[in-house]
Measured scan of single mutants.
Amino acid sequence: KYLVLALYDYQEKSPREVTMKKGDILTLLNSTNKDWWKVEVNGRQGFVPAAYVKYL
């Protein structure tokens, strides 16, 4: 498993997404889509914009 760092705040806009705050450390679950990565944060799984996170 990889960890990624939230570069920006992101507010979920659909039930498939998750909210994150700048500085959050997220567990990367799937990065096959170049635009949306599946992550786990605070016990929830969902998608965030790939451009908003970077590998640690």
Results as ranks from 00 to 15, higher is better:
P15E: 12
K21D: 04
D24G: 03
V41H: 14
L56M: 11
S14I: 05
K13Y: 05
Y10S: 01
E12V: 06
N42L: 08
F47C: 12
K13S: 10
A51S: 14
K21R: 12
V48R: 00
V18T: 06
L26E: 00
G46W: 02
F47S: 03
E12F: 05
K1C: 13
K13P: 04
W37E: 01
K21W: 08
P15Q: 10
Q11L: 13
Y8G: 07
K22G: 06
L26S: 02
E40W: 06
E40M: 09
Y55H: 13
G43V: 02
V48A: 03
R44G: 04
L26I: 08
K54S: 12
N42C: 09
P49M: 04
V41Q: 10
N33Q: 09
L5S: 06
G43I: 02
K1W: 10
M20S: 01
Y55I: 15
A50R: 12
N42F: 07
T19V: 03
L7V: 09
G46N: 01
K54T: 15
F47M: 09
D35F: 14
N30L: 09
L56K: 06
Y8F: 14
K54L: 13
Y52D: 05
N30C: 11
K22D: 03
S14Q: 09
Y52N: 05
V4Q: 01
L29A: 03
Y55T: 13
W37C: 06
A50S: 14
A51T: 11
L26D: 00
S14L: 09
K13L: 11
Y52A: 14
T32P: 04
L56I: 14
V39W: 00
T19P: 07
K34Y: 08
V53E: 00
L26H: 03
K21N: 10
G23S: 04
F47T: 03
V18P: 01
T19S: 15
V41K: 13
W36H: 03
N30D: 15
P49Q: 02
A6L: 03
Y2D: 12
Y55M: 15
L28Q: 01
T32H: 12
W36C: 07
W37T: 04
P15L: 09
V18Q: 03
A50W: 01
K54Y: 10
R44P: 01
L28E: 00
K1A: 13
L26P: 01
N42E: 11
Q45I: 14
D24K: 03
V39F: 00
D35R: 12
D35M: 12
S14Y: 07
V4Y: 11
V53F: 05
D9A: 06
K38T: 07
V53D: 00
V39R: 00
K38L: 15
K54G: 14
T27R: 13
F47H: 05
T19Y: 04
E12D: 05
K54E: 14
L26K: 00
I25Q: 06
I25S: 03
W37R: 02
L3I: 10
G43M: 05
Y10G: 01
W37Y: 10
F47P: 00
R44E: 06
L29E: 03
K22E: 09
K1Y: 14
L29P: 00
D24R: 02
P49D: 01
R16A: 13
K38Q: 14
E12A: 15
G46I: 03
V53K: 00
T32N: 13
E40Q: 09
Y10W: 11
V53P: 00
T27K: 12
N30M: 08
A6H: 02
L5Y: 11
S14G: 13
R16D: 14
V48K: 00
I25M: 08
L5W: 06
L56W: 12
Q45Y: 08
G23H: 05
S14F: 06
M20H: 01
L28V: 10
L7M: 11
Y2R: 13
K1R: 14
W37I: 09
S31Q: 10
K22T: 08
K21Y: 09
E12M: 13
A51Y: 10
E17V: 05
P15R: 10
N33L: 10
Q11G: 08
